[in-house]
Amino acid sequence: AQDREASAQSSSPVIAAFKVFQQELDTKHDKHERLVKISRDVTIESKRTIFLLHRVTSVPNAEDILNEAELKLDAVRQKIGQIAEELRGEDIFQFHRAFTGGIQEYVEAASFLHYIRHRSLISLEEINARLVFMKSEKEDSEGPADTLQPGGQVLTFQVSPSDYLLGVADLTGELMRMCISSVGNGDIDTPFQLSQFLRQIHDGFSYIGNTGPYEVSKKLHVLRQSLGKVEDACYALRVRGSEIPKHMLADVFSSRTTHMEPEEGVV
């Protein structure tokens, strides 16, 4: 009986075909697993970068923090490079579910850094421009990529418009947090700037409405809440500021800082 099975397994074309399928399925599954793991790392490091960036409102040496964040994001981009490596020659949508979470979080972090630096929304193209990787030669170099470095090979990762939108939707939550911190730190310009910027993003999302992917519509509610909080903060600044002439307002806030300084040595 044993040889029956053995012979069946070896001779049957059905069994032979299924052995091929087995390999194909396992390969795909393993790749999916690897992508999930890299994506988790991308998520964690992006979140840490965002946390770091929030310190920018409270410290004087903002540039140091921005540089540190830039370094962290470089590391994240290296991870995304690994994703791109895994996806080389694949249909990326086949594995999209495995890495979309990480990519959205990266967009959130990168766009947050960009906003703090430039007070503007990073575009999808700008995001993607940073996701070009050099790959030192290995195996066959498929096609003559216009290499900057001989023997190297260019590898790109393209963030999809949906992932970009979902990342930007989450960004608004961080902007709201930043606005509230700014108020707490006596910064009166940032909140108004942020409210304008958030309103633009909000109007943008309502323009897109339900024509975007389903997950975007789901995030709209949170976005609206964030906008509400920022508008309330600006309102509060205005209402309180109304009690004294405008030109005195800045003084009041800056005096706070000077007022505090002597005490700091004590604490």
Binding site: Q196, R199, H202, D203, S206, Y207, G209, N210, E231
Partner: peptide
Amino acid sequence: LEQTAREILTVLQSVHQP
């Protein structure tokens, strides 16, 4: 209709701007 409604909304949203 939804498209036009969204456009009207975008127009009217600007009243919230300073």
